[in-house]
Amino acid sequence: MNFTLKIWRQENAKAKGRFETYKVENISSDCSFLEMLDILNESLISNKIAHPVCFDNDCREGICGMCGLYINGRPHGNDDGVTTCQLHMRKFKDGETIWIEPWRAKAFPVIRDLVVDRTAYDKIIQAGGYVSVSTGGVPDANSILVSKDKADKAMDAAECIGCGACVAACKNASAMLFVSAKVSHLALLPQGKVEAANRVQKMVEKMDELGFGNCTNTYACEAECPKLIKRSNIARLNREWICARVGKEK
């Protein structure tokens, strides 16, 4: 298969970026999208055309959350429930022009080419996305009972890989799905319930502070989440927020 690629190139965070056009030829349909970019980079180096295109990637099996490209108007490209590394070229038409852009959000500034800085996510987690326990001195695992239903729901939310596709997809660059996944995961479990009220407030305030937009319930996040995390988590976050604010003492 042959493709024309329009790729965002940007030297560094401060430089002005632009789209460059490259062609790749004889790509196998079994090739993954990132392998196609590998092939492009090999040829860019070998033929001394340009510095290879920088893009984040690591596990290449859809779990680390490192990769993330905005491909033809969709985060992680034109397939549902996959990360960019799991997207295969058979999903494209031969001869197609493919636009590749980095995640765009104020909170995710571009570092170079298609690489963005997602440390904002870490900062949100640091604001309260954990159970405050230190190592040791914890009760026996089976002394905390969790209903299967709750455990399953918590796991549904905990599957978030922190890739940023929800922010990339959202017209408001809102991180609500990400935040709500962590809030839900912990609020559903007795271990996390203890500090749930504090957690939801801290995380939401941090999210606002970092320059993410807010949720207008378009659910683009849900449509693009590679782990199929549900909008119901956002509703749960809202509930948690209301309970936390109503119950807050001065």
Binding site: Y130, V131, A141, I144, L145, S147, K148, A151, A154, A158
Partner: peptide, 20 residues
């Protein structure tokens, strides 16, 4: 380790009775 992880909120698989 299991005790520690459960205390941290790791959503291990559960049986219907709520045990691990």
């Amino acid at each position: 380790i299991i005790d520690q992880c459960v205390a941290q909120g790791v959503p291990f698989a559960r049986e219907y009775g709520g045990l691990l």
